[in-house]
Amino acid sequence: MELRIRDKNSKIHTITTLNEQASFKELKEEISKLTGVLLPYQELKIGYPPRICKAKNEDTLASAGLLNGDIIILTEISSTEVVKGTPTISAPAPAPAHALHTPTVPSTASKSSSKDVISIPTENGFFILREMPDDNSCLFRAIGYVLDRSTDTVQHLRQIVIDHIRKNPDHFSDVVLGKPREEYCSWIARKDSWGGAIELSIFASHYKVEICSVDVRSGRIDRFGQGQYDQCVFVIYSGIHYDAIALTPILDAGQEYDQTIFNITDDVTLKAVSAVANKMKQLHKYTYTADFTLKCGQCGHGLKGEKEAVQHAQSTGHTKFVEYE
């Protein structure tokens, strides 16, 4: 089988020496030979939208879900993220007094080293990136973090979207949604359906707050509810993923001290958040999907870019995509 590895510099490496019954460890060893990234520091993303592969070293490539022609995105993680040789994702933990609702703190939350977080210092503290899991619900988790101070309200937030669409049929026609209204509601209710501009506009209206989505690659800020409210929150969009922005007094402070809601007229906050996005761009912490050549893993239909993938998912219910060249 042929597998292609995209490294952090977007260089493509090709592996043709393995078959479907080769182990995941053998794959990582081949990647190490090609890129110089040692096994414990490899984070591999597969599929579309790209998701972290959770395969164990002894698993076969077939059982890991890898197919001939797949492209694998390689990220080199820091030593503090390595536990027993396996990359882990730092799960956000919430909870300050200023939140709109009573906060909940996930018991699985872990803290990242202050050396590894992406942050910008200001007179009031550090504007910091709070990373969300790669699970197709990152937008909902990011919104839950900045507005409900919980990343565990995904299904509740999906239901808010459904209820809002049903109550406002004139604003959310089949044309706007890209499919019949009830089909869209059924689709967005599924845990593997990702959200976007429609959902952000609904959350702005529901919570009566402006939501600013900052695009890492372009630096563009999309404002939902612009000019309607006195407060705002920020999420960071890195091409296929959403994360949250918070203000912490010191980098090693617990996330219960995070501030996530800001005054709409605060230019210092806006500049600091833009600086966080720019820092992510410099570190190449984004994946630009507009030019990705994709194939639906369920019907084989060829697609180009995230937009066509979203349209295909909405019209067919298919959610498994693979990148190919």
Rank of each mutant, 00 (worst) to 15 (best):
V105H: 15
P92G: 06
P87A: 11
L18R: 02
G125W: 08
F224K: 01
R166G: 10
K191M: 13
C299R: 00
I250C: 10
E29D: 14
D152P: 01
I120H: 03
N68F: 05
V37M: 07
Q255H: 12
Y286M: 03
E43S: 15
I46H: 05
G302V: 00
V37S: 07
Y184G: 08
K45F: 13
V161G: 00
T260M: 02
L251T: 06
A97W: 09
K279E: 14
L157P: 01
A275S: 15
F321E: 00
I77R: 05
E210S: 02
Y41R: 14
D59C: 11
I31C: 11
F292L: 08
L129A: 06
Q21T: 13
S201W: 04
G36V: 07
V83W: 09
P106K: 12
I5H: 01
L157M: 12
S218W: 06
I236E: 02
A290L: 11
D70Y: 06
I118A: 12
E323D: 03
E308A: 05
K11W: 05
G227A: 11
P169M: 05
S218V: 07
S10V: 09
Y41K: 14
Y288V: 04
T151R: 08
L157K: 12
S137T: 14
L200P: 02
D170Y: 07
H241Y: 11
I120S: 01
A277M: 06
G196E: 12
E43K: 15
A55D: 09
Q226L: 11
